[in-house]
């Protein structure tokens, strides 16, 4: 069964939508990080941040509809709306669609707001709206309610492997014909606590990267039911231990996080690209790697990574990409891989 990516909805420091992401990747839009400061006992902790711009949400929903929805879910709603619009789907086509959301941290900002409510005012005055919005699957619920999606709904959370995990189940649902299309989303938000925790985690890393936030949503459809042109075919999703199961690199470009290159993969025999210095590092930034792969396959050309070379590490790559492997590593030396393939019948430019 062929699975096609029919729409993408990227959002982050660059803005929202494929045009904004493409401008970032082409270098026509430059987004410098802002420096956030956290006052602590040991002094001021400075954290460079590529913060998401999400004002475009007002193109889709009124402020009134969003008034009880937190920032995490608003980001997810933006990505979902962009992807559905990009796929050209009408409301009537969403009823039986599935939703799968991948998030590394969930609505952590709202969780801390909930803790504030009872730490400040006592347990009896805990804020119910913060509690209900802090639940990991609240974003999927808001999408379902506001967009009228009533198929299966799933949220997964396992840090950097959240996105491969979500795509694994999306592929499964489509292959077992549980659904004919799935909205798969990657989303993570920044807040000072996460920033402080991240700063501690990367304190010994010579290349700590820049913290970011954002994500991307995708509309996946079965090609036998929807033959309209898409960005790429979703060929395979795997979660493997590379020391136990060999990953087949078929002379294709690989998009991975920059930390992967610096942790011993430079010697691997494949041309490797990394773009997260443009949109920042966060657990589900691999969603933006996938969006980048979709645009590269559509354009039939890899984007030059930051620095202007023809690959970040490994072999040089100058040809036309026929397939792209997106790679993330997680806990327990487990790798998640997602392979996309050029689609003959491509979406019009």
């Amino acid at each position: 069964m062929q699975i096609s990516i029919q729409g993408i909805g990227p959002f982050g420091c660059f803005g929202a939508g494929k045009e904004d992401l493409e401008a970032l990747l082409m270098g026509t839009r430059v987004v410098p990080p802002e420096v956030t400061r956290i006052k602590m006992e040991e002094g001021i902790v400075e954290i460079p941040l590529l913060k998401a711009k999400i004002s475009k949400i007002e193109d889709f929903f009124s402020r009134k509809k969003l008034r009880r929805i937190d920032r995490f879910s608003t980001m997810a709603l933006l990505g979902a709306s962009l992807a559905i619009s990009d796929a050209g789907l009408s409301p009537g086509e969403l009823e039986d669609m599935g939703i799968i959301i991948a998030t590394g941290y969930g609505a952590s900002g709202t969780t801390f707001s909930f803790l504030d409510s009872f730490l400040d005012k006592g347990d009896k005055l805990s804020a119910p709206t913060h509690f209900s919005n802090s639940v990991h699957n609240a974003a999927a619920a808001h999408i379902s309610c506001l967009l009228g999606i009533k198929g299966p709904s799933l949220t997964v959370s396992q840090f950097d492997l959240s996105v491969p995990s979500a795509f694994l189940t999306a592929l499964n649902w489509l292959e077992e014909e549980r659904v004919s299309s799935v909205l798969v989303g990657a989303v993570d938000e920044y807040n000072p606590v996460i920033g402080y925790a991240r700063a501690d985690m990367v304190s010994d890393d010579p290349n700590p990267g820049i913290a970011g936030e954002g994500g991307c949503f995708f509309v996946l459809s079965r090609k036998d039911l929807d033959n309209t042109p898409g960005y790429a075919n979703l060929v395979s999703v795997a979660m493997v231990h590379p020391d136990r199961t060999a990953i087949q690199f078929k002379n294709q470009p690989v998009i991975a996080d920059s930390q992967r290159h610096d942790s011993g993969c430079r010697e691997l025999d494949y041309p490797c690209f990394s773009y997260d210095s443009l949109y920042g590092q966060f657990p589900t930034a691999s969603g933006l790697d996938l969006a980048t792969a979709c645009l590269a396959l559509k354009n039939r050309s890899m984007f030059n990574p930051p620095g202007g070379t023809t690959s970040t590490h490994g072999h040089m790559f100058r040809g036309v990409p026929k397939s792209i492997l997106c790679l993330r590593s997680g806990a327990n030396k487990l790798w998640g891989t997602i392979t996309l393939e050029f689609q003959n019948q491509q979406i019009p430019a």
């Binding site: 998030t103 969930g106 639940v135 990991h136 699957n137 709904s153 799933l154 949220t155 997964v156 959370s157 396992q158 840090f159 492997l161 995990s165 694994l168 189940t169 795997a238 979660m239 493997v240 231990h241 136990r244 199961t245 997680g330 806990a331 327990n332 487990l334």
Partner: peptide
């Protein structure tokens, strides 16, 4: 402590891992 990742690591399993947070 990601629950699924932790069980896989504890026993050295080699397959896919998924932690579901569907309330």
């Amino acid at each position: 402590s990601n629950p699924a990742a932790c069980i896989a690591k504890w026993y050295g399993f080699n397959g896919p891992v998924q932690t579901i947070v569907n309330a």
